[in-house]
Simulated scan of single mutants.
Amino acid sequence: MPKVHAQSYPTHYFYNRLDLLPYLREGENVLAVHVYYQGLMNRSMNSGDLRQGLIAELLADQSVQAVTDESWKYARAREYIGEETIGYDTQYLERIDSRLEHKGWEQPGYDDSGWEQAMTAAPDHQLALQPTPVLSVYERRPQSVRQLSDGHYLIDFGTELTGQFTMKASGVGGEQILIRCGEELNAEGTGARYELRCNCKYEET
Rank of each mutant, 00 (worst) to 15 (best):
Pro108Ile: 02
His12Asp: 10
Trp115Met: 04
Ile177Arg: 01
Leu129His: 03
Thr162Phe: 10
Asn42Arg: 05
Tyr138Asp: 14
Gln117Asp: 11
Arg95Asn: 12
Asn42Tyr: 06
Asp112Gly: 00
Arg78Trp: 05
Gln65Asp: 01
Ala169Lys: 08
His125Ala: 09
Cys198Leu: 15
Gly191Phe: 06
Leu148Lys: 01
His12Cys: 06
Phe14Gly: 02
Glu203Pro: 00
Leu135Met: 13
Tyr37Asn: 12
Gln126Ala: 08
Glu116Leu: 12
Gly189Ser: 12
Leu40Ile: 13
Thr11Ser: 14
Ala77Arg: 07
Ala66Glu: 13
Ala187His: 11
Pro142Ile: 12
Leu21Lys: 02
Leu58Asn: 04
Gly53Met: 07
Ala169Ser: 13
Asp19Gln: 12
Arg25Gln: 13
Trp72Cys: 01
Asn42Ala: 10
Arg25Ile: 11
Gln52Asn: 13
Ala121Phe: 11
Glu57Phe: 07
Leu50Cys: 07
Thr85Gly: 01
Tyr202Gln: 10
His5Arg: 05
Arg95Glu: 15
Gln143Glu: 13
Ala60Phe: 06
Thr162Glu: 10
Ser63Gly: 03
Met45Asp: 09
Ser63Trp: 06
Leu18Cys: 05
Leu93Ser: 05
Thr205Cys: 09
Gln7Ser: 09
Glu139Tyr: 08
Asp112Ser: 14
His12Arg: 10
Arg25Glu: 13
His34Lys: 10
Gln62Ser: 14
Thr205Pro: 03
Arg43Leu: 09
Leu135Asp: 15
Thr190Ala: 11
Pro108Ala: 07
Asp61Pro: 00
Leu135His: 07
Gly173Trp: 07
Cys181His: 11
Arg95Ala: 13
Met119Gly: 06
Val134Gln: 00
Leu59Asn: 05
Gly189Val: 08
Gly48Val: 11
Glu101Arg: 04
Leu21Ala: 11
Gly87Gln: 00
Thr68Tyr: 00
Gln176Leu: 13
His12Val: 06
Leu24Glu: 12
Ser149Pro: 01
Gly191Met: 07
Gly163Leu: 05
Asp89His: 10
Arg43Gly: 12
Gly163Tyr: 06
Asp89Thr: 14
Glu203Val: 15
Gly27Glu: 03
Val172Met: 10
Glu195Gly: 08
Pro131Tyr: 05
Asp49Cys: 10
Asp97Ser: 01
Leu18Lys: 00
Val172Ala: 12
Tyr92His: 10
Asp111Cys: 02
Gly109Thr: 07
Tyr80Gly: 01
Gly82Phe: 04
His102Ala: 11
Arg51Ile: 15
Leu154Asn: 00
Ile155Asp: 03
Thr68Gly: 03
Leu129Pro: 02
Thr205Asn: 14
Gln147Trp: 00
Asn186Ala: 09
Lys103Ile: 15
Gly151Asn: 02
Tyr202Trp: 14
Thr190Trp: 10
Leu154Gln: 04
Tyr153Met: 12
Ile55Pro: 01
Glu83His: 06
